[in-house]
């Protein structure tokens, strides 16, 4: 799709906003509709759109495959790590109340971190799966 000028221009204009919207959904998910799962998928969709319009090679330059694969594990480890941190701070596993002095603040912090972990893993899995499918087709 290298020669479709309209597609290229619109994608270039749109992708930053898609990423911005994904971040908004990620961190505003406590107050409005949204959260890690949705944000991860939207974030992944931005990269997939980029790969569709500008070609897989350019997309792989923006998001190298080994980095994406590493992020799959990082998200899950962040989630599990929050649980371990709660354990070390004297609470039960995944009991975020122990993360801060005030249980409510701890809960809020824990939810934020856990959602971040969910978002990272979901986004990385979506990007990695699409890249492998696209790479296979060449």
């Amino acid at each position: 799709m290298r020669h479709h000028v309209i597609l290229r221009v619109i994608a270039k204009l749109g992708i930053p906003f898609i990423v911005l919207f994904a971040l908004y959904v990620q961190f505003h998910g406590d107050f409005g509709p949204g959260g890690g799962f949705q944000a991860g998928v939207i974030f992944g969709a931005a990269f997939i759109l980029y790969a569709l319009i500008f070609g897989l090679d350019n997309a792989l330059e923006a998001a190298p495959m080994n980095v994406v694969v590493a992020f799959i594990a990082i998200g899950l480890l962040l989630f599990a790590g929050v649980g371990v941190a709660a354990l070390l701070l004297g609470g039960n596993y995944l009991d975020y109340g122990a993360l801060a002095d005030d249980p409510v603040a701890g809960q809020h912090l824990g939810i934020l971190l856990v959602e971040l972990g969910v978002g990272i893993t979901v986004a990385a899995v979506m990007i990695a799966v699409f890249f492998t499918f696209a790479d296979r087709g060449r």
Binding site: G35, F37, V41, V122, V125, V129, F133, R136
Partner: peptide, 20 residues
């Protein structure tokens, strides 16, 4: 269901890769 949808697409991707 929120989690099930995302898990669903991940398992669908696994099935599709088996098809390939």
């Amino acid at each position: 269901i929120l989690t099930a949808i995302v898990v669903g697409v991940a398992t669908t991707a696994l099935g599709l890769s088996l098809v390939v």
